[in-house]
Simulated assay, not measured.
Amino acid sequence: MRDAAEVRSRLDEQDYLVDDGLAMALFLALRLGKPLLLEGEPGVGKTAAAKALAAALDAPFLRLQCYEGLTAAEALYEWNHQRQLLAIRLAEVRHERIGDADLFTEEFLLERPILRAVRSDGPVPPVLLIDEIDRADDEFEALLFEFLGEAAITVPELGTFAAIRPPTVVLTSNRSRELHDALRRRCLYHWIDFPQPARAAEILRRSVPAASEPLIRSATEFVGRARELELDKAPGMAETIDWVGALAALGAGSWVREDALATIGTIAKTPGDHTAITALLSASPPAPQEGP
């Protein structure tokens, strides 16, 4: 892509709306061939950014979902032990000698998302999403340093695999823990904030086309106020889309307090948040807004 404006336009075609800051961050990641670390509150569209970018580039999309206890065997590569055992038994039947050099070859290598991204030889480099890296253990980050810095993976038994064309790498974090400085140094960085009301309303128009304009405006205004509360989990765009979708499914063409209360579980995800948001709704419900 030629510039940030084209990135923004191509993502718009995928119904993913970005501001100038995110458009520039994605453009630089593509132009410089650097991994991009996206941080922000849950539900602001970090994962969706990687998916939309892959669609805009018409590139394969690979995803590594991180979690506590994630290992190299699940993220980078592992050996096909069943095939190795079968090869050993066949050699015994044939009275042949078989050593490590025969067992640790590419024939027995199983690619996991990161090695698959490195070894991709398609016409367009893949987009690799390393999702919620903050959920993985500290030790797992160290496994990524070679890949993030050099677009390469070393398999001790076979050597180093380096990408002919580096994949586009997007990492996301909800900041549930601090990431190592060594990982941050290898990445470009962008913080995704909750969208401004006008952009949030436009996202809702595209995501829930059945919703009326008064309903979209009222929901956008109310969620903005709800985020100012001391909540366990402030509602993001994903939750707002669910809420407006639920209200539209009920046939609500405008803001109705009873419908809003009945569907409050789409944006309130803990008992405390449910109580706080219900109190806000009861105290000062948003009035339906008319006009453009």
Rank of each mutant, 00 (worst) to 15 (best):
I216T: 14
Q196A: 15
Q82V: 10
T154F: 00
D259W: 13
R186H: 02
C187G: 06
E96L: 07
T47L: 04
V169I: 11
E6S: 14
L90P: 00
A101S: 08
C66W: 05
V155R: 06
L11I: 06
G272A: 12
Q14L: 04
A25G: 01
E221D: 15
V169P: 01
I88L: 11
A283D: 14
P197V: 15
G45K: 01
A283E: 15
A73W: 03
R185S: 15
A279P: 03
I164Q: 14
D259S: 05
P167E: 02
R97W: 09
D138Q: 12
R185E: 10
E41K: 04
Y16C: 06
V44L: 08
A152V: 05
W191K: 10
P195G: 09
A5P: 07
D20A: 15
D102V: 07
N80W: 11
A152P: 00
D100Q: 12
A54H: 06
E202F: 07
T172F: 04
T270Q: 07
A163C: 10
T275C: 12
E96A: 13
Q196F: 09
A246F: 08
S212A: 14
P285D: 05
R217I: 13
E78I: 00
R177H: 10
R186I: 09
S120G: 07
R206T: 12
A52E: 09
L183D: 09
K269R: 13
P113N: 09
I153V: 15
I264M: 15
I241T: 04
T154W: 10
H81S: 04
Y67H: 09
R8C: 06
V118G: 02
G40A: 05
L103T: 08
A198T: 12
L229V: 04
V127D: 00
A59N: 03
V18E: 06
R165C: 01
I164N: 11
A198M: 13
A151P: 01
D273E: 11
W191S: 05
Q14V: 13
M24P: 05
E146N: 01
L36V: 05
L204Q: 13
L143E: 07
E68K: 11
L281Y: 14
G45H: 09
I203A: 14
C66A: 06
T266W: 08
A279G: 00
A142N: 09
E96D: 02
N80Q: 11
E290A: 13
S282V: 00
L143P: 08
I133R: 00
E221M: 14
P288I: 15
L36A: 12
E141Q: 15
F140A: 00
T105I: 01
V124L: 13
D12N: 12
A210K: 13
T240I: 00
